Simulated assay, not measured.
Amino acid sequence: MSAMKPLLLSAILLALGNAAFGQQFAGQNITMIVNFSAGGPTDVEGRVIARHLPKYLQGVGSIVVRNVGGGGGNIGVNQLGESSGKERMNIGFLTWNPLNQIIQEPTLRVRYNDLKFIAGMRQTSLIYIRRDTAPGINRSADVARARLFRLGVMGPSNITTLRVRLALDLLGAKYETIQGYKGLRDIDTAMLQGDIHVSTNSLPGYFTYAKPNLVDKGIVMPLLQFDRADVSLGRSPDLRDVPTFYEVYKDVWGKDATPGGERWQALRLLTQLVDTMYRTAFMPPNAPAAAVEEMRGAFAELGKDAEFIAQYEKVVLTKPHFVIGAEGERVIAELANVQPSMVNFLRRYIEAMQ
């Protein structure tokens, strides 16, 4: 009987340890920092997640969403990365811009590698164009013969800006860039008003605003979807009727044509980064390790939550695809492995727009 006492004591201590490990957030005020303004696609997704995530964080009744827009998303990232001790349990739900870290953009004061990675969300993104872009757009390849048109973007070093510019350049399109918009919703509004002709978005932004207000009304048409990291995978299951960049390129330049050169290499690099994780969730650098593990576990459970998935699909009009653990960490680690020659090209390409 006495031999059983050490085993019983060990079991009790282990149980107490596991209970404490799973209650890192109990009694804490948890804030979710969203790095774009209210009403945009990042905000819409973040609020659905914030509504359901407390179910998997012991002792948490709700999560408050704080929109910290501006600076192309960098202000919100900086605020998360510079969290004080009392803010160390907060979480950021971000449309991240890894390009800013690659080129060492001065407005990004923190490194993604220094934040505590929680999860990513895989999403396809696409470009769309006004049908009345002269002399008229009836199919995607028509962009190559269109007269000078206006592309609306946020800022020169925004990763969505570069992806669209690189794609249009490779297709031989003629355009001028109108920058300074605060978010993609503002750009869509400008497109609706006829101020610009071309924009881009992720699937949530496209399905919730661009499609019903622009595409379904015949004002714009989808131009292309960015190829997935593995080009051979073809079109996204969520966009079966929209050609990939690779398809449009061959339609413009010939079926045997293959893109190449620095612009193509840059487009492939940026696609590999954001195809795997378009949205990201991080905790501050000073977040306790046990809290990070509990939050990761909560996101893993959220990805299996039928109620959450149903509401996300109802609001965002596409299914959530979480990236948890090693796969996401590998993407972040790759930011330090970009060749200097590519970094120099990206800097020159951005400077040419400024």
Results as ranks from 00 to 15, higher is better:
residue 183 G to I: 00
residue 151 L to H: 14
residue 188 D to V: 08
residue 216 D to T: 13
residue 183 G to T: 04
residue 204 P to R: 09
residue 193 Q to S: 12
residue 160 T to G: 15
residue 155 G to H: 10
residue 229 A to D: 13
residue 218 G to P: 13
residue 238 D to R: 14
residue 229 A to P: 08
residue 227 D to C: 08
residue 184 L to D: 02
residue 174 K to E: 04
residue 213 N to C: 07
residue 216 D to W: 11
residue 192 L to N: 06
residue 220 V to H: 08
residue 188 D to P: 10
residue 220 V to F: 09
residue 164 V to S: 14
residue 179 Q to D: 14
residue 203 L to N: 15
residue 206 Y to G: 03
residue 197 H to D: 15
residue 215 V to N: 13
residue 219 I to F: 03
residue 195 D to M: 04
residue 190 A to G: 00
residue 225 Q to F: 05
residue 184 L to R: 02
residue 197 H to E: 15
residue 223 L to C: 02
residue 182 K to F: 07
residue 198 V to R: 06
residue 198 V to C: 12
residue 210 A to K: 14
residue 158 N to C: 02
residue 158 N to F: 14
residue 159 I to L: 15
residue 183 G to E: 12
residue 153 V to I: 09
residue 180 G to E: 04
residue 184 L to F: 13
residue 186 D to H: 05
residue 234 G to L: 05
residue 217 K to N: 02
residue 237 P to Y: 13
residue 212 P to E: 02
residue 232 S to G: 11
residue 186 D to E: 11
residue 177 T to H: 02
residue 176 E to T: 05
residue 226 F to Y: 09
residue 228 R to L: 13
residue 225 Q to I: 02
residue 151 L to I: 10
residue 192 L to S: 13
residue 155 G to R: 08
residue 205 G to R: 01
residue 190 A to P: 07
residue 222 P to L: 02
